[in-house]
Computed example of a mutant assay.
Amino acid sequence: MKLTPLLALTAALLGWSLASQADDKPLKVGFVYVSPIGDAGWTYMHDRARKIVEEEFGDKIETNYVESVAEGADSERVIRNLSARGYDLIFTTSFGYMNPTLKVARRFPQVKYEHATGYKTARNVGNYQARAYQARYLAGMTAGAMSSTNQIGYVAAFPIPEVIRGINAFTLGAQATNPNVKVKVVWINTWHDPAKEREAADSLILQNVDVLTMHTDSPAVIQAAEARGVYSVGFNSDMSHYGPKSHLTAAVMHWESIYRDKIQAVLDGTWEPKAIWHGLKEGVVDVAPFNEAVPEWVVEKVNTVKMQIINGEHAVFEGPIYNQAGELMVKEGEQLSDEELIELEWYVKGIDG
């Protein structure tokens, strides 16, 4: 049937309208979280960043999240469901999501994925990390200076390079202000279990530690320190409201700049499956405000080293560094490369674990 000029114009306008609606369709961005969002910790800071970029981009994006997703089969199911529901960009925010993300990505080549803290990429999978070890070092400096028993306790999740790297950096920082300090490590093999975290913290206090820190997700360690009258150092977020007296500072993370850049790249059509590792210099990691109990000389020293790290004048893993057995692992004047840091599987001298 031949269209009349009026019908042809109507059809053209309708087609233009539908195309405009398609062009104006917001980018669907999904987030997968390993623990409850809560009001502190790892997932809380990722979700805080999600809210920040959602507000900044306005109607250009639409975000959603799934929290408390176990690593392994559960995460694969959740990532697959988000992919099938038309999400354009999916952030998977825990180390154990790495292989499930890669597996799902092969089935959904049109979707872009970004995995946090792992080390693998693929055609449609990028990777992003925070140099948390830089903030860990600064927090360790604070802890070492405040310990009178020279014993610090560390509640740790899983023995993977990311966590070991943090323990080592914290210990090196503590030794920079207190050469006699020892760090006792207790592994609980979970990212988020307040009861286990509290139990581990209490057991460390019984071993004469007077400063506690952790690489877990809840504030249970801070609460234990506050209840038992010892100092604490938080992780991921400022946890001072859980320990007004005990909380000295925290190694904190701000993911919004990474999320902003990744989302903008997808909107611009310039996204690439890159691996990035941002730290103090990029504003992704930092230390929280200091407790009034921390002496001014400690604050000044920490801030000086912070600026040296930002300016490239100080490296956390610069030699000489010895391992737990007293063997020289990093010679004086040398430092561990990023490749070596990603695979780090040994303790520095002074760790009991």
Rank of each mutant, 00 (worst) to 15 (best):
G153M: 03
V287H: 13
W255L: 11
F170S: 12
N81P: 00
S257F: 02
S75N: 13
V287Y: 07
E162A: 14
M253H: 02
L18N: 06
Y33I: 01
V155C: 08
D74I: 02
R165I: 01
A176R: 03
N150L: 00
H254G: 08
D23V: 09
D23R: 10
T121N: 13
E334C: 00
Y97V: 02
Q207W: 12
E318Y: 01
R80L: 00
A250H: 09
E76Y: 00
N81C: 08
L13G: 11
V305E: 04
K51D: 07
F317R: 01
A11P: 05
V285Q: 14
G153S: 03
N311S: 13
G229N: 11
R198D: 13
D23F: 11
K120W: 14
M1H: 06
G353F: 06
Y133M: 02
P320Q: 03
S17T: 09
A105V: 12
R123T: 15
S83E: 15
M98I: 05
V330T: 06
Q207K: 14
G326T: 11
Y231G: 12
L267A: 12
I222Q: 12
V32L: 09
W271R: 03
R136C: 07
L13E: 11
L18G: 07
V211Q: 08
G283L: 04
L138V: 13
W255R: 15
I90W: 02
G333Q: 05
V32E: 04
V181T: 10
V305K: 11
E332H: 01
T190V: 14
A325C: 00
A227G: 08
A19G: 14
D59V: 01
P219S: 12
E256V: 06
N189S: 11
Y259L: 06
T117L: 00
M214S: 15
S257L: 04
P219G: 03
L102F: 04
R48H: 01
Q207T: 11
E256P: 01
R50P: 11
K112R: 15
E340Y: 02
E327H: 02
V230E: 14
H278N: 14
T216L: 04
G319R: 08
T213H: 08
D24S: 12
A195F: 06
D286P: 05
M307R: 14
H215K: 13
P320E: 07
G41D: 08
T10W: 01
K112V: 07
F290P: 09
L336N: 02
K245P: 04
I321G: 09
W42E: 07
G229K: 13
H278P: 00
V181P: 02
A49C: 05
L280M: 13
T43L: 04
E71H: 06
H241V: 11
R48N: 05
A116H: 07
G15H: 00
I152Y: 01
W297A: 09
I351D: 08
